Amino acid sequence: MNLRDERQGDREPVRTVHLQAFGDHGALVADLVDTLRGTITPDTGISLVAEDAGRVIGHIMFTPSLLDAPRRLVEVQVLSPLAVAPEYQRQGVGSALVRRGLEMLAERSVPLVFLEGDPGYYHRFGFQPGGVHGFRRPSLRIPDAAFQVIQFPAYEPWMIGTLVYSQPFWQHDAVGLRDPDN
């Protein structure tokens, strides 16, 4: 398996991975990825792929967002989304993508990375419940346990506040869980 930066020619294979990995929500996530690409520059985000024998089998994005701290807005990153082709799941592809992305962000002096996800999965990378550390979710639709954060050496104790997702997450209604009965 090879991990590398996403290239222009990877767009359709990346889209396919998200469509397959997210099932009924695949189109929403694939569209979100397409929009999030516009928020990434070499200094402000990461889009990595995992490939096997030249085939894209996994994808992860880290994109810029803001933390509304009392002192000032703080530039942070959001890990979302992460997808692995179904036939490659549970083989370490997702873990390798997460670890590589976090290593890259730590080198860039990013103070915090947030995500919405399964605590049982992301805890192994050092993510912890955001609320326990004084961070507030950007939406009440995000379950407390799913709202997670990892702190890097650039973090300072005054950097506490509310996560403000970048506009594409709101545009695609990809924040938290919707109640299908309402």
Rank of each mutant, 00 (worst) to 15 (best):
E156Y: 13
G130I: 03
L115K: 14
V113P: 02
A145W: 05
L112K: 13
P157W: 15
P138Q: 07
H133M: 03
Y155W: 15
P111A: 02
A106Y: 09
M159D: 08
R136I: 03
G130L: 03
R141T: 07
Q151I: 00
A145C: 02
P153R: 15
P153Q: 11
E156D: 12
F125Q: 07
R108F: 04
R124D: 06
A106R: 15
L140T: 13
P111D: 07
F114E: 01
V132N: 01
A154L: 10
G131Y: 01
I160D: 04
Q128M: 07
R141D: 06
G120H: 15
L140I: 09
R136H: 08
F125M: 04
A145R: 14
F152D: 06
L112I: 11
Y122F: 12
R136S: 02
S139G: 02
P111G: 07
V110L: 00
L115T: 15
D144M: 01
T162A: 05
G161H: 14
F147Y: 13
R136T: 13
L163Q: 05
E107A: 11
L105S: 09
E107V: 12
G134K: 12
F152I: 11
V132F: 03
G120Y: 14
L102T: 13
D144K: 12
R137K: 13
R137E: 04
Q128N: 08
A106C: 05
T162N: 06
T162H: 09
I150W: 10
D144P: 05
E116F: 02
L102R: 14
E103Y: 12
Y122A: 06
G120V: 11
V110R: 05
Y155L: 00
F135H: 03
L140C: 04
P129C: 04
I160A: 03
F135V: 01
G126R: 15
E103R: 14
L112M: 09
E116W: 01
L163D: 00
I142Y: 07
G134M: 03
Q151P: 02
E107W: 09
